[in-house]
Structure formats: structure tokens, C-alpha cells
């Protein structure tokens, strides 16, 4: 079964790029797209994806806030932050908030997949392997 992914990014360019990278693997399937944190939160409740890629800087509600909110609903949610270089402090904040890992823009497809695979392999937060 494919891993169901929600892509959250305000830039369509980025969403399409990620979608292509993920769909090309045949193992991941993008099932939802959100353009800001607020939308992501709504969609998460409806779709319950296995994995979320979350941009950090977005209008309405940013990725860090959205990460906190989603984890409040579902502490097991697997969220991977999408960061530009130079946003390291924000990534660290996101990790502290409970994000599992991060990928760096501009995206290198193999690297993105490696990180997502790894996140899917590990047990949900709070449990020991």
C-alpha cells in the first residue's frame, strides 16, 4: 500500500515539484494539498494522511504553528518540515515542537525520499523501537 501524503506549501511550484518526486517513486501518493497551516489543519482532520510535508513560512498560519496544532489532535502524526537554507532556527523550533525531520529546498529527490523513508520506518514519537 502506498504511503498517503499531504503536501503543505503556499507555492504551487513547490507543491508540484514535491508531488512529482513522491508520485514517481510509486510508493508515495499525494492525497491532499494545502496552501497554508489553517488549511492543512482542516484537511488533516478529513484526510488523515500517513505523512505530511510542511513548509515553514506560509500565510495565515505558519508551518510551526500548524505542526503544533496537528500534533495536538494526533500526537502520532508524522510531519517533515520543508526548509530553505538559512531557516535553520525555524527548523530547530519545529523539531522541538514535534516535527520528525526536515528536507531542504532546493529539493534533491533522492535525499527527500531517503528522509521520508526513514521517517516512515521509525516508530511514532513517544515509543521506543
Amino acid at each position: 500500500m502506498k504511503v498517503r501524503v499531504m503536501v503543505v506549501d503556499d507555492a504551487m511550484f513547490m507543491r508540484n515539484m514535491l508531488k512529482e518526486i513522491l508520485n514517481n517513486t510509486g510508493r508515495y501518493e499525494v492525497v491532499a494539498e494545502a496552501t497554508n497551516g489553517q488549511e492543512a489543519l482542516q484537511l488533516y482532520k478529513q484526510v488523515r494522511p500517513d505523512l505530511i510535508t510542511m513548509d515553514i513560512v506560509m500565510p495565515v498560519m505558519d508551518g510551526i504553528e500548524a505542526t503544533r496544532e496537528i500534533l495536538r489532535i494526533d500526537p502520532q502524526a508524522r510531519i517533515v518540515m520543508c526548509s530553505a537554507l538559512g531557516q535553520e532556527p525555524l527548523v530547530i523550533e519545529s523539531i522541538a515542537a514535534g516535527a520528525r525531520d526536515f528536507i531542504v529546498k532546493p529539493f534533491a529527490p533522492e535525499k527527500v525520499i531517503r528522509v521520508l523513508d526513514q521517517v516512515m520506518q521509525t516508530a511514532p514519537a513517544g515509543q521506543t523501537t
Binding site: V57, A84, L85, G86, Q87, P89, L90, I92, E93, I95, A96, A97, G98, K105, P106
Partner: peptide, 17 residues
């Protein structure tokens, strides 16, 4: 721009790290 952000180091409060 490679990176349009003009962020500064943020010290996250209540960091669980």
C-alpha cells in the same frame, strides 16, 4: 532568490530539546 527569508536566530521558548 534561493532563500527569501530574512530570519534571525530564534531561540525557541519552551524548547523540548
Amino acid at each position: 532568490p534561493v532563500d527569501g527569508s530574512t530570519e534571525t536566530w530564534v531561540t525557541s521558548s519552551g524548547s523540548s530539546l
